[in-house]
Every structure is written in C-alpha cells, then in structure tokens.
Design a protein around this nucleic acid. Structure first.
Lengths: 224, 224
DNA sequence: AAGGCCTAAATTGTCGACAATAGAGTTTAT
DNA sequence: ATAAACTCTATTGTCGACAATTTAGGCCTT
C-alpha cells in the first residue's frame, strides 16, 4: 500500500520554496534555533526576497519559525517542554478527531482503514520499523481527515504534524512501542467501526498520552 | 474592571494593516464571502500591494480568508456547518486548556479570576448584556492563557477566537443564556481552584457544548 | 576603566514596475 | 448552432531598488 502524505503540489514559485524550506527545517538541514537571513536564503534558493518572505510567513503560521518585527526570523528551538505542550494539543485535537471520525466516516472509509491496519500487521511481523513509522503517520492522517472537520484537518495536517515530524526526525524517535502501538490502533479502529464516539476519543487520547510518556522517558529521567 | 483583549500593538505598517483588515472582516465592513482585490485594498488602505499581500497571508493563517494560487483571496463564508465545526474544535482545545489551567495557574491568578467573576456578577445583576459578552471573552481568554501552553494559546487567541467573534458579530449573537453561562463559569473556576483537572475539562467542554446547542437552535430548527 | 553616545554596516520593511497566469468575450471551423 | 481556439484584459506572482530600523563597534566623557 502506497504511502504519500505530501500530495500538495506546488503551483507557484512561492509554494515550491515554502515546501523546500519546510522540509529543510524539519529534516534539520537548516538547524533548529538558527537565524533565517532573507538575503542569504534568497541566493541559496535562487528566488527573490519576496518569495522567501512569503515562505517565512507561512512557516511562522505553522509554528516552525518565529518572527520578530525589524529583527528577523529564526527556526524554533526543540525543547522537552515544547514537545510536551505539542502532545497535549495533539491529545485534545486528535481525541476529538477520533470522536468525529466515529460519527462521520462512511463504511467504505472504515473498511479501507481496516485494510491499512492489516497491511501494517504484515510489516510489523517483518519488523520493518521504518514503514511502521510511516504507517503510524498514515493512520493518524486518516483519522483526522475522517473527522470531516476542516479546522481540525488544517490545524493538524498543515500545522502541528510538521512540528511533530521535526521532533521525531531530529530527536531520533523510531523507538520500540511498535507492536503495542499497533494494538492501540486496532482498538481505535474497532471503536470507530462500532460508532462508539466516546470510546474512540478516549482510546485515541490514551494512545497519544502513552506515546508522549514514552518519548519523555527517552529524553529525561524525570518527567513532568 | 477594564476589558482589553487587543493589547497587540502594531510595530510595522504591515502589522497595522493586518489588524485593520482583520477587524474590518470580523465586524463585517468587508463582507463575508467577498473577494479581496489586492490593488483595490492597497489604494483603500494607502499602502503598497506587498503590505496587503502580507496581511492577506496572515489572515489566511487564522482562517479568516481563503487563498487560491493565481486566482486570489476571498473572505470566508459563514455557514451553520462551519460554526458547528468551529465549536467542536473549541470544545477540544478549551477543554484541554481548562485541564491545564487547573494544573498550572498559580494561586494569585486564580484569585484574580475569581475577582473577575465577582465583577461579572454585578454586571449580570444590572443586566448589562454587552459587558457580559465582553466578560465572557475575557473569562475564556484567562483560562486559555492560564494553561501556559503556547500552542494552545496561539491557536485559540491568534486564530480561532477572531473567527468566533466574526460569527457572533455578524450573526448577532448576544442572546440569553447570560445568567446560566455565569453559573457555568463559576463552576469551572471552582474546579480549577480545587485543582480538579478532570472536572475542569469536563465542565468547560459542556459549557461550550451548551453554547453551541444554543446557537444552533437560533440558526436552524433542525440541529445536526 | 566603565558607561553612554555616535557612527556605520547590515538587515528588514516598503515600494513601484514588470512578467505570468486565469477568465471572459470573440472569433472560427465543423 | 455548438464547441473549440484565440485574443485581450484584469489580477496575481515576482523582482530589484530604496527607505527605515536594528545592532555592533569605536569614540568620547567622567
């Protein structure tokens, strides 16, 4: 089963530059916490300062950079507190997404989602961690879109998920928790298939909470 | 007690223009659903197109306008479905905000919040609906900032709240529910003062859910 | 020597002009 | 008559230059 989350195709030059910038920041090619010089970037990406500025503004909107008037922009710094706060927001939003998915996903979408889990099961058996990681992203992606709530979708997919990916990539999350996370996914899908909104939300919130605790333990011995 | 939620001061011309645009959209001076012509706005606000473009981009980030490449931007349309989806996101985020506020607000902040409610009680007695409306905004504002979660704060205050205000202003929400909402506020503050995270979240979610139902009934006789 | 002030360099903010694209209206061919 | 292709116009996308602001460094004063 194919995995592609970045189906957003660049129309204009500003689009393309924004995607490149975002990717370079998420992947760490542009270091976290570093300053973003407009002139420097404009020569590096071979576009005018105007498109760089638009890119930086868009990056500010998804919380990947911070901008200060008359001073400049810099890439956000990755901190344990920031990661915790990020997961708290995820817990709230994705919990609601699971609730709404249980209400609004049609039968066809649910069957497809179950099929996705089946294919994950095979990769888990073969212990292909990378695909599991991508599969996890794909799973959450489907729940969110399944909520049919445009605000939820845009805030998570256009916004927070890129920051989540940035933490994962740069702090080297791949981790265990693969098989247990798979079971949690299965339970969530079951709740959605049963149209049990309450349970779907609760299971999703716990799933994210566990994930947060798992990451916290990896980062520091004393969780908050 | 003074009420000021827009303490954000414009530094640059782009800031000032963005605030003006945002206000004109929220207040309805620029009609919902109407197209935003860059050249037209640039003459109207007496700034260059670059400034207008930055403003439009920022408005896109807080979901007040929608932009399509090579076509242009238009103000979002207000629909019952959009309002419902907005309140669903509010329920999730502000519920979490109340939970975190119960965890992170210090005693001084809680006392101040209780004082705010006391002053509301007087205005409610005098039936000054306008101040109650502003007071409601102030109340929610404090809970959100009390969460000490920067993502939560920015998504709600810089983003969704302006859209909420737009719905309230343009669909003429002032409504009854004043005194009952006041009681709900009181219960929420009590839960926070008792450091009861679970209850604070639940009460806040119900508070927003009631508010949503109240608005739905005003809009259409058949709620979703 | 420490502190403040002034100057200069670099960076961001703003602007007007030009290029590229989309949409409407007109023409033309079947 | 209809549909496709073309032209033209209005709007957005992109660019380089100029203005305003910040910041760092040296200089002067106490």
């Amino acid at each position: 089963m194919s995995i592609q989350l970045d189906v957003e195709k660049p129309i204009t030059n500003a689009d393309r530059t924004f995607y490149q910038l975002r990717n370079d920041i998420v992947e760490g090619a542009i270091l976290a916490g570093s300053k973003l010089s407009e002139t420097e970037l404009s020569t590096k990406y071979e576009v005018s300062r105007a498109v760089i500025r638009e890119g930086i503004n868009r990056l500010t909107a998804c919380h990947l950079v911070e901008r200060k008037a008359n001073v400049g922009a810099k890439v956000v710094s990755l901190t344990p507190e920031g990661l915790i706060q990020l997961y708290q927001v995820r817990e709230a939003l994705e919990g609601m997404a699971a609730r709404l998915a249980a209400r609004h996903m049609n039968d066809e979408e649910i069957v497809s989602l179950q099929g996705l889990l089946d294919s994950h099961f095979n990769t888990v058996k073969d212990a292909q961690l990378y695909y599991q990681e991508a599969g996890d992203v794909d799973f959450h992606y489907r729940i969110v879109t399944g909520s049919k709530n445009s605000h939820l979708i845009s805030v998570l997919i256009d916004g927070l998920y890129h920051l989540v990916r940035m933490y994962r990539v740069q702090l080297g999350m791949a981790g265990p928790r693969v098989s247990t996370a798979f079971d949690e996914h299965r339970h969530i899908v079951n709740a959605i298939a049963n149209r049990d909104e309450e349970l779907a939300e609760m299971l999703m919130r716990r799933h994210i909470l566990y994930s947060k605790n798992n990451i916290e333990n990896k980062l520091s011995p004393t969780p908050t």
